[in-house]
Design a protein around this nucleic acid. Structure first.
Lengths: 207, 207
DNA sequence: ATTTGTTTTAACTGTTTGGTTAAATCGAAT
DNA sequence: ATTCGATTTAACCAAACAGTTAAAACAAAT
């Protein structure tokens, strides 16, 4: 009988993820989530007492997917080249599968910045190891001197922004052609990787 | 008597900009906009019949500010170095003054991608001249070969993303320290400029 | 057969919200 | 003095919405 409960709970969370990601907290409707989950509103409130509680649960679920990946990338990388390759490849790959997640996360975080506090408690990323890998590369003269924070933001920017800005890119640069956009995304991993390495490495041979 | 009308209309638009940018279309309330404008709800509907009409007007206002800047940058730049310098400087400067605009624009554009169609009609950016400047630089061997679209997206990403991702940057990298974030933003223009030039120019002396 | 937790049904409450209406006021222009 | 558009006041409407409730149905475990 436990399985029934977990099943329904998961069905609700999946449905809530979908609706919240597409509509945001303000735009989402409890009725729509119930419909999407194939249940009724009463049962929805039976499992999650309020919209806020459901949202919090869903947000943790979604955000932890992102931070978990970042943690794995950091711990699986031993030098700066690996770090860059893994980070760019895995991030673009992850987001490609759920392209509306970044807009959702960023928007809700701006709407309620305090959400980040809970997330840090739950998914503490050791940003220090991150920084250390970069500092090591700089001190060993493998790359140009660079502020680690700027570098990380640069990488995240170029990986995430193309998905958030899809309407702009398609509208102004690709004549609304969805195929061209998909092609652009397919090229993106390799392009960003070489673009960043070109900037970091003084001698291109070292790549 | 005309002046009174225009005055009030502008007061409403200013107030609506503020509220819509902070709360988004779904989160904004007509009463709050009326309060912010120092008028009552009846007068608000007297000027703009519906929330949608008001939103459309406001969105045009905000978005055209962005595209206008981009147009000016393009037409005021004669070579790739000028283009990069102007674009990065002006964009970060513009957004610094209204840091919540990017999240608003991107979120509403994803919520309703058709908005971009109207904007293209109103503010047709000649992206072709943009591309031409980059292609010229490539064929003249001034910079490494690069897909112009990727380059533009790279520049926009690194300029805009830091503002959209403020909560993440502050939370995970700057220990929630607002002063450090401001310092990070202050450095940003110069950093992005050199980061991109380092990537583009094979010989650093050419910069 | 009874119990227990899950799910449905269906109606309902209370509040928020976008939008309307009508009458009154006010200010400037004629 | 009158006219006309701008503005306020205050009440109102209808729809949407989050959340509740109670009774019944159901399914599995005891």
């Amino acid at each position: 009988m436990v399985s029934v409960t977990e099943n329904t709970e998961q069905k609700i969370i999946d449905a809530a993820c979908k609706v919240f990601i597409l509509k945001g907290m303000d735009g989402a409707r409890m009725q729509e989530i119930a419909d999407e989950a194939g249940i009724n509103k009463a049962l929805l409130h039976y499992y999650f007492r309020s919209k806020n509680k459901l949202f919090d649960r869903v947000f943790v679920e979604i955000f932890s997917g992102i931070t978990t990946l970042l943690s794995e990338v950091v711990s699986n990388s031993t030098d700066i080249v690996e770090l860059i390759d893994n980070m760019i490849h895995n991030y673009i790959h992850l987001i490609s599968e759920r392209p509306f997640v970044p807009d959702f996360v960023l928007h809700e975080l701006n709407r309620n910045p305090q959400l980040i506090v809970e997330q840090i408690k739950l998914n503490g990323i050791d940003f220090s190891k991150f920084q250390q890998l970069i500092i090591n590369a700089v001190t060993q003269n493998k790359i140009r001197p660079i502020n680690p924070i700027h570098l990380v933001v640069n990488i995240l920017s170029m990986c995430i922004f193309p998905f958030v800005a899809k309407p702009i890119i398609m509208g102004f640069m690709l004549n609304g052609d969805e195929d061209k956009y998909q092609h652009f995304i397919d090229e993106r991993t390799e392009h960003v990787t070489t673009f960043i390495k070109n900037s970091l490495f003084i001698n291109p041979a070292e790549k």
